[in-house]
């Protein structure tokens, strides 16, 4: 592969991944409203276009048309920096996720992963840990007590749940023996999905993923009924849109990570028996991965409209007194079992 071809292929892949995450985030807002409505015996938005599928466009136009308000007493630079960081960090996570195996076109192999760094999981951990800055800076720069409270809640919650999430990932890494997402996805051929080997680890990871994406029941940073809007109380127009959008992209990415780490990624059980051509199998793999991702996005919404919000002390109790001991215990068990097997 020549250098220029390589560059073009990477740029195309990056743009496609970026666009897909934006479109999915856009339609997640629509799906969220539809799911909420259906679970409450309503119909949800159905006026813009057939079944309301143009609703996200209408919402986006509304967001852009709204008056842009920057509070006089706020720190202007940081006020703008906050949503930018939130959006940026949620967009760059998609770089390490293997969306499929590879396509063989024009005599070259095109891997469907933007970059395969050998520490893919840690990269995702790092990016999520940076993501909290967007919320903290935005909340502080608003110069509003509700925003500050939301920012503080966000940071303490994210730090607390990152620990348990990291430990769950450590258990997974002890099982897989690699930190590269591509290798982890490739290992789970057929029915060898990691969730069957790491059920408790998956449960911990799932709970922590809810906490890291600030989704109900862990939406304390924004909790509308207590803190008005939490960290984005003072935000308006597209800066608010960025925060909301970042949340949905985070949801999409964490669904993708969950599918890749625990549910076999692009692997389909029994696909080997069909004897498909490699390219068809790869495309089917992508479709299958997205089916898993959509299931998890639905799951996020399903939980949101079922489970009520935690109180803050309950949240901290769950994080520090239940999830962390449980994850340490699970790491110990995984280590013991791995030792027994590899003897």
């Amino acid at each position: 592969m020549t250098f220029s071809l390589f560059i073009i292929y990477k740029i195309v892949l990056v743009v496609v991944v970026f666009l897909i995450s934006l479109v999915i985030a856009m339609y997640s807002t629509y799906a969220e409203r539809k799911v909420a409505a259906f679970m409450q015996d309503r119909l949800g938005p159905n006026r813009a276009g057939p079944f309301g599928i143009l609703q996200p466009v209408a919402d986006g136009v509304k967001m852009f048309m709204k008056e842009e308000i920057i509070p006089q007493v706020s720190n202007k630079f940081l006020f703008i920096l906050g949503p930018s960081i939130a959006m940026f960090t949620s967009c760059i996570t998609g770089a390490v996720i293997p969306w499929g195996t590879s396509l063989h076109l024009f005599g070259h192999d095109f891997s469907l992963q933007v970059t395969d760094i050998n520490i893919g999981i840690l990269y995702i951990m790092a990016v999520t840990s940076i993501g909290v800055y967007g919320i903290m800076i935005g909340g502080w720069a608003s110069n509003n007590k509700y925003s500050l409270l939301g920012a503080l809640r966000a940071s303490s919650q994210m730090i607390s749940y990152e620990v348990a999430m990291g430990l769950a990932i450590i258990a997974l890494v002890m099982h897989t023996g690699t930190l590269s997402l591509k290798a982890i996805a490739a290992q789970q051929v057929g029915w060898h999905w990691n969730v069957f080997y790491q059920p408790v680890g998956f449960l911990i990871f799932l709970v922590c993923a809810f906490a890291e994406t600030n989704r109900t029941p862990f939406d304390l940073p924004e909790s509308d009924s207590e803190l008005i809007g939490g960290y984005h109380t003072e935000y308006s127009s597209m800066k608010l849109g960025f925060y909301l959008f970042a949340e949905y992209i985070n949801m999409f990415i964490s669904s993708a990570i969950m599918s890749t780490l625990y549910f076999g990624g692009y692997n389909m059980p029994l696909i080997g028996r069909l004897h498909l051509s490699p390219n068809t199998a790869a495309i089917l793999g992508v479709v299958f991965l997205f089916a898993k991702i959509f299931f998890f996005i639905f799951f996020f919404m399903w939980v949101r409209w079922t489970v009520p919000r935690f109180r803050f002390d309950q949240l901290m109790n769950l994080g520090w007194k239940i999830l962390i001991p449980l994850s340490i215990f699970w790491v110990a068990i995984t280590g013991f079992v791995t030792l027994m097997i590899h003897r």
Binding site: V35, F38, M39, D41, T306, V307
Partner: peptide, 21 residues
């Protein structure tokens, strides 16, 4: 308890909607 709640919301997901357009 959470599973029970999830089952309940899923049941309502497929129920007939009461909205009058």
């Amino acid at each position: 308890a959470i599973m029970g709640g999830m089952a309940l919301t899923l049941k309502h997901f497929f129920k007939k909607k009461v909205t009058i357009q």
